[in-house]
Simulated assay, not measured.
Amino acid sequence: MQLLLAPMEGLLDFVLRDVLTRIGGADRCVSEFIRISGTLLPERVFLRFMPELANGSRTLAGVPVRAQLLGSDPVSVAENAAFLATLGPEGIDLNFGCPARTVNRHGGGASMLQDPESIARLVAAVRRAVPGHLPVSAKMRLGFDDRGRMRECAQAMVESGACELVVHARTKADGYRPPAYWEQIPLIREAVGPHIPIIANGEIWSVQDALRCREQSGCADLMLGRGSVADPGLALAIRAALAQGVPFVDTFADAVPATLPPLLPWAQMLPHMQRFWVLVCEHLTPNQRGGRLKQWLNLLRRRYPEAETAYQQVRILTDQNAISQWLEQQLAAHAPGQHA
């Protein structure tokens, strides 16, 4: 089983990639999308989105990172892909799934799912532009307004040279509203054949969700997004459940309680949170720093009761030093031998 960390603009960036891959469980990451809009981007832009390029395209924990490009012009995307290839990425991923209105208005992301021929031209151009050994993969949704062309789109990607597909099991119109329609992914599998790896993505928040997704999608491999941000030990917990012999059938997924406590207790989470804060303060502008920690705490509330209190305490803090002091106090309060 392969477990991938999803690209999530403004959330799962290089800072969280560093933290989550240190915790463990992920086999590969994908960068936030790098938008291509008609110009050849300089090296510094690629490094800003994916500083791992300076470390052999790996996080400091050694997990490979694939660069994701988003654009609609085959010539421009291919030229940028060719330059990016000289920087040594693990691979190049193409975004056909972003639902953002600004992206779709300019013909990128999920909007391309309305035109399989444009997808084919883009994938083929990138495949021709980069060395043959470099993987070119694609991430898609089930469609734009509906699922009518999902098989045609997937075929266009694979026949034009994509070696792997990640399928976010919702349409653009579905946005991020539950549920994810994992049961639609086998139709894509039928369309592209048995030899192309397909990775299921969407609404995987727990071990139970992961088991259900594997059964309904027919995919052994999964991509985790918000679920891993809300529960940083989720990938390890999924691996542990499978290692313990939980069968690959949906009926047994019912036997896995949805309310299992996080694999990583809150006291063990706090040092990771402190590292996150240090990296945020080193790499982000002052007006972004506090918001990033609050954003993460907000998602952690989904799995950690302690995160609710932490979020309420931090949300009123605006000074960087005050937040640093709060973190030090939390670490001291939850140190071995102390009572929170």
Rank of each mutant, 00 (worst) to 15 (best):
K172L: 07
D115R: 15
C153W: 08
G225P: 11
A240S: 12
F49M: 08
Q338R: 15
L242T: 06
R214Y: 05
I316W: 05
A82M: 03
V126H: 05
R121T: 00
G227T: 04
Q325L: 15
A235G: 06
N55E: 12
S206E: 12
D319P: 00
P336Y: 08
Q244N: 12
Q313G: 00
D13F: 05
C219Y: 00
P64W: 04
V136N: 01
A67Y: 07
R44I: 08
Y311F: 15
L122N: 09
G91W: 13
R189Q: 15
R189G: 10
G161V: 07
A258C: 13
A258V: 14
S31F: 13
I23W: 09
H106L: 01
C213I: 08
A26M: 15
S206R: 11
L3Q: 03
W182V: 02
D254I: 04
N104Y: 08
M223Q: 12
R226K: 14
P186A: 04
N55G: 01
I198R: 10
L3V: 09
N201K: 11
L234G: 03
I34E: 14
N298C: 11
L236W: 07
G193F: 11
S57C: 01
L4Y: 15
L87C: 02
E203R: 04
D18K: 12
D18Q: 11
G97P: 08
E215S: 14
V45R: 06
R303E: 07
D221Q: 10
L12K: 09
A156D: 08
R35K: 04
G161S: 08
T86H: 11
A237T: 00
L236Q: 12
P7S: 10
Q155V: 09
A67L: 11
A129I: 07
S37C: 10
R128C: 03
P262T: 10
L47S: 04
R44C: 02
I238G: 00
S76N: 14
L331A: 01
N298W: 12
Q2T: 12
N321Q: 14
L5E: 05
V207N: 10
L317S: 07
A200Y: 06
I92V: 14
S137P: 02
P262S: 10
I119S: 10
V246P: 05
L69G: 03
A200W: 09
R275W: 13
V65I: 12
Q268S: 01
L293H: 05
P336S: 01
A173F: 01
D250T: 11
G245I: 06
T251Y: 13
N80Q: 02
L4M: 13
E32A: 03
A129M: 09
D254R: 15
A61V: 05
E328D: 15
P89E: 10
G62N: 04
C98T: 05
D209L: 00
F248P: 08
A82H: 00
L293W: 08
G291I: 00
S137C: 05
M50E: 09
I34L: 15
A220I: 04
A82C: 03
D115M: 04
Q216N: 07
E32P: 05
V158H: 00
Q329L: 09
P271A: 06
L113A: 00
I185E: 06
Y311M: 00
C153L: 03
E308P: 06
P247D: 04
P262E: 12
E203S: 11
I199Y: 12
